[in-house]
Design a protein around this nucleic acid. Sequence first.
DNA 1: CGCGTGACGTCTC
DNA 2: CGAGACGCCACGC
Length: 113
Amino acid sequence: MLEYLKSVKEKSSSGFFKEVYRLVAKVPRGRVATYGQIAALAGRPTAARYVGFALSSSPDGLELPYHRIVNRTGRLAPDPVFGDQSIQRKLLRREGITFLPDGRINMKKHLWK
DNA sequence: CGCGTGACGTCTC
DNA sequence: CGAGACGCCACGC
C-alpha cells in the first residue's frame, strides 16, 4: 500500500491525488476543510477516504496544512498521525481557530468557503 | 474482474 | 459516549 503511494507521489501519476494536494494547499489560514469537501472539489464526492490517504502520504517538499483538514463532525485526525492530537489542536488554535467545549472544531465558524 | 487498503461518513446499539 | 458495521472508492497487483 505504502509502496504504491510512494510511486504515486513520485510520478504524480494520479490526477486525483494531485488535485487533492492542490486543493488542500489552497485552504487559507484560519480555515478548515473536511475530507469529504476536498474529495468533492477534487471531483470524487464519495472518495473522502482517499483524501486522507493522499494527505498521509503527503509529498516531501510540499508543506500541506494537514492540520486544517478534519472530518465532518469537526473531529481531528487520530493521534498517530500527529503523534498527539494536542499538536494539531495547538497548530489550529495558533491560526485563530476555535474549539468547542468537547474538543471539536467550531465548523460553522471556520469551515472553508 | 477481484482483492486489499484506509487521516471517511453516517447509522445502530 | 464508545464500538461496530457498512457503504464508499482510487489504485496497484
